[in-house]
Simulated assay, not measured.
Amino acid sequence: MTKTTFKQPLLDHNSPEFKTAKQAEAALFNVYNLTGTDTYYQLPDSDMRVRVTEIGSGTPIFIVPGNTGDGFPFSSLIGHMGNHHFYLFNRPGGGLSDGIDLTKLPDIRQFVVDTIDTVLNDLHLDRVPIMAHSMGCHWALWYALAHPERVSKLILIGNPGRVMLGKTPAPLKVLTLPGLDKIVSKRLIPKNQDQAFNGLKLMGTNKETLATLPNELREAYLRFEHLPNYSVSTLSLLKTLTVNPKYEIKAADLAQIQCPTLMLWGENDTFASVDKGREIGNALPDNRFHLVKDAGHMPWLDRPEECAGQVELFLQ
């Protein structure tokens, strides 16, 4: 395990912010008739705790969320799938795991691989399909490259982090400019429920979907983005994995992936074009690419039944 050389920003489980966020997530789960059981795992050589929420029963699926690592947006997709034991991993810095400042880590890639390895070991999952979104796809690909024997299939949803990206998207680059980063990130954090879906708008979620998503999802976004470590975790993610070319996963790397992959790509994903998605898919040795029409960077929000059906078909 890559040893952390400084104290990471831990999350106080007794704080009002923690309790309010957890209540908001539970209310959202209830909308989709989901019940979650939480376990916290201590990372070796660190005081950091990461959270895994287990939902359902049946064949296992390990989920690596996008953004900073919040798991609650997967609720609608999980709710449209059955007969699975979902392991919803809250990446460090997101969900209700402890915060993280990635700029302080000496080797981010090794930290990612070691963290997932630790969690899978603790869960006694020797070989499992991994479903991931956005930056979570980046983490999942790194892990599949390091431990191909432990990943049976990969489901990659949305533009998969810094993968064959080349130029950094302008909206992300602005967030890393000295002096502007904290100002812009602060403005992006919603002040109320009316602003809670601003991020989804920027990611291409269609207007009709935004009008019909439950208020419980609005409340979850509002509360999780007001957790005390959200800003430092977000900014450090942008300043490292998102914009630094040395962390890019290239076509030659993708060619080494040994398991079958499914890519679900929203037609209106604002982080990369459909052509780029197909290019990434063509670089994977055994890939099925599915375009989700009129959907954004989180395509299951726009088309939950379609996305769930594609995942189920692929897993079969």
Rank of each mutant, 00 (worst) to 15 (best):
285 P>G: 06
257 I>K: 09
55 I>Y: 00
38 D>I: 10
212 T>V: 13
203 M>G: 04
302 D>F: 03
114 D>I: 01
182 K>E: 15
16 P>F: 07
42 Q>D: 08
87 Y>Q: 01
170 A>D: 14
306 E>G: 03
295 A>P: 13
124 H>M: 10
286 D>S: 10
111 F>Q: 01
176 T>N: 02
170 A>C: 02
213 L>P: 09
88 L>T: 02
149 E>G: 11
89 F>M: 02
311 V>W: 05
221 Y>H: 12
10 L>W: 05
272 A>D: 14
282 N>Q: 14
19 K>N: 12
130 I>W: 09
44 P>F: 09
284 L>N: 02
206 N>G: 04
259 C>F: 07
90 N>Q: 07
106 P>N: 14
146 A>T: 03
56 G>Y: 05
272 A>F: 08
62 F>I: 06
137 C>P: 02
199 G>P: 11
73 P>Y: 01
43 L>C: 12
124 H>T: 11
131 M>S: 08
129 P>R: 02
199 G>I: 11
26 A>F: 03
272 A>M: 12
190 P>F: 06
77 L>F: 14
167 K>F: 07
42 Q>S: 14
163 V>Y: 02
234 T>W: 14
61 I>S: 00
64 V>F: 04
280 I>A: 05
252 A>G: 03
292 V>D: 07
254 L>P: 10
161 G>T: 02
178 P>G: 11
30 N>L: 02
41 Y>N: 05
185 S>K: 03
80 H>W: 04
253 D>W: 06
104 K>C: 09
205 T>N: 04
215 N>W: 09
314 F>A: 10
142 W>Y: 10
36 G>L: 09
215 N>A: 12
270 T>I: 02
263 M>L: 13
149 E>R: 06
315 L>D: 06
105 L>F: 08
102 L>K: 13
272 A>G: 15
129 P>T: 05
49 R>F: 14
137 C>Y: 00
24 A>E: 00
69 G>H: 03
314 F>Q: 10
82 G>E: 10
51 R>I: 00
63 I>V: 15
202 L>Q: 13
241 L>S: 07
